[in-house]
Amino acid sequence: MKCGIIDVGSNTIRLSIYHYEGRRFKLLMNKKEMAGLAGYIQNGTLSDSGILVACRVLASFKAILENFDIQEMHVFGTASLRNIVNTEEVLDTIRLVTGIEVSVLSGAEEAAYSFLGATVGGGAPAAGLLADIGGGSTELVSYEGGRITSGCSLPMGSLSLYTKYVSGLFPTKEERRAIRAQVKTELERAKTAGVRCSHMTGVGGTIRAAAKLCNDRSNADPDNPVLPAWELQELYQQLKKGDQKTLRQILRSVPDRVHTILPGLVILNCVLNSYEVETVSVSTCGVREGYLLKRVMGVNEHA
């Protein structure tokens, strides 16, 4: 069987095409559009322009699936559609314009699917912390023996923090301080203080971009998935200078993250410090694979 899964995120909208059978699946194709929906949210409302961007991208992805003669399509939204006041209006407009039904995941569902995708689909260690830093939200799940011990979804991400606090391309010292203050407040509100996880598995665009930048700086294999936490903390210290060298490095390695990488790294560093993380691995699987396993394939993570 083949299916397409579309993830409507705050920063990107992604289409993944899978072949699946039994408990096994294979990714056939991945395509993303940097839609930046979080940038179209004003006073908690996704603007008409933002809705049209979502419709345009979804229609183009639907056409791709039709060209491949793939009938099965699943579309879900995360923080981009969850943390707005006009969710139903947006869903109705998308349905009217494109004929596509979009389901909106709760924060708990997004965290659970990210965990399932990373642990069952991506082979994460049996214990540790899972962090999914997206454009509009951050999911944190601590687990042991393959089971969740605590989890939360924080209403902040790399793009939403950029949109809220940053006036230029890179955040100033004062803007970085404001971002860090909100991240720490959200972590304290989530009552995760006291949880310690020496290893973290990272999911999402921020951690993938950070790993790519670290590997580029150290001339390591670009696909090296395991990094010491201090290397990611050192990366932030270098990039926060926001000078010409910083800009060149980001444009060379992760050009589509040029404006969101620093806000994302603030979140990442606060999480590393809060949980006293020592090593970080980057998972190739996440929320889409978790959705595929649970909602499409009906796989129980503990089966």
Results as ranks from 00 to 15, higher is better:
Phe68Asn: 14
Leu52Gln: 15
Gln71Thr: 15
Thr93Ser: 04
Glu72Ile: 03
Ile41Tyr: 09
Glu89Pro: 05
Asp92Ala: 12
Thr45Cys: 12
Leu81Tyr: 07
Lys62Trp: 11
Val90Ala: 03
Gln71Leu: 15
Asp69Ile: 12
Gly39Met: 08
Ile41Pro: 04
Asp92Tyr: 02
Leu58Trp: 09
Thr98Ile: 06
Ser80His: 09
His74Ser: 13
Asn67Lys: 15
Arg82Glu: 11
Phe61Thr: 04
Leu91Ile: 05
Phe68Ala: 14
Leu58Phe: 02
Ser49Thr: 10
Leu58His: 08
Lys62Cys: 10
Leu65Gly: 05
Gly107Asn: 03
Leu91Ala: 05
Ile94Gln: 02
Val90Phe: 03
Gly50Thr: 14
Thr93Ala: 08
Ala59Lys: 13
Arg95Met: 02
Ser47Asn: 03
Gly50Arg: 14
Val75Tyr: 04
Glu66Ile: 14
Gly99Cys: 07
Leu105Ser: 01
Leu65Asn: 08
Gly50His: 14
Phe68Thr: 09
Ser106Cys: 03
Leu58Ser: 03
Asp69Lys: 15
Leu58Glu: 01
Val90Arg: 04
Ile51Met: 10
Gly107Trp: 08
Glu109Ser: 01
Asp92Met: 06
Val75Asn: 05
Asn86Arg: 09
Ala79Lys: 00
Asp92Val: 04
Asn67Thr: 15
Ser49Leu: 13
Val97Arg: 12
Ile94Leu: 14
Ser80Val: 10
Gly99Lys: 07
Val104Glu: 01
Asn67Asp: 15
Ser106Thr: 14
Ile41Val: 15
Ala111Glu: 06
Asn86Cys: 01
Asn83Pro: 01
Glu109Phe: 00
Phe68Arg: 15
Thr87Ser: 12
Ile41Leu: 12
Ser47Asp: 01
Gly44Thr: 07
Gly39Arg: 11
Leu65Arg: 12
Thr98Met: 01
Ser49Val: 11
Leu58Ala: 07
Val75Met: 02
Thr78Trp: 09
Thr78Lys: 03
Glu110Tyr: 04
Tyr40Pro: 02
Ile51Pro: 00
Ile64Ser: 13
Asp48Gln: 13
Leu96Phe: 10
Ile84Cys: 05
Ser60Leu: 13
Leu96Cys: 08
Thr93Tyr: 11
Gly77Lys: 06
Glu89Trp: 05
Arg95Tyr: 06
Lys62Glu: 11
Phe61Arg: 07
Ala54His: 11
Ser47Pro: 00
Asn86His: 09
Tyr40Ser: 02
Tyr40Met: 02
Asp69Asn: 15
Asn86Val: 05
Glu89Met: 12
Val90Leu: 05
Ala111Met: 08
Leu52Met: 14
Cys55Phe: 06
Leu91Arg: 03
Asn43Gln: 13
Val102Trp: 03
Met73Trp: 07
Cys55Met: 05
Gln42Trp: 07
Ser103Phe: 00
Ala54Asn: 13
Val102Gln: 04
Val57Thr: 14
His74Ala: 07
Val102Lys: 05
Ser103Asn: 08
Leu81Ala: 00
Leu91His: 01
Ala63Met: 14
Ser106Leu: 04
Gly77Asp: 08
Asp92Phe: 06
Ile70His: 13
Thr78Cys: 02
Gly44Arg: 12
Val53His: 08
Glu110Ile: 01
Cys55Glu: 14
Val75Gly: 00
Ile94Lys: 07
Ala79Asn: 07
Ala59Cys: 08
Glu72Ala: 06
Ala111Leu: 03
Val104Trp: 03
Asp48Pro: 08
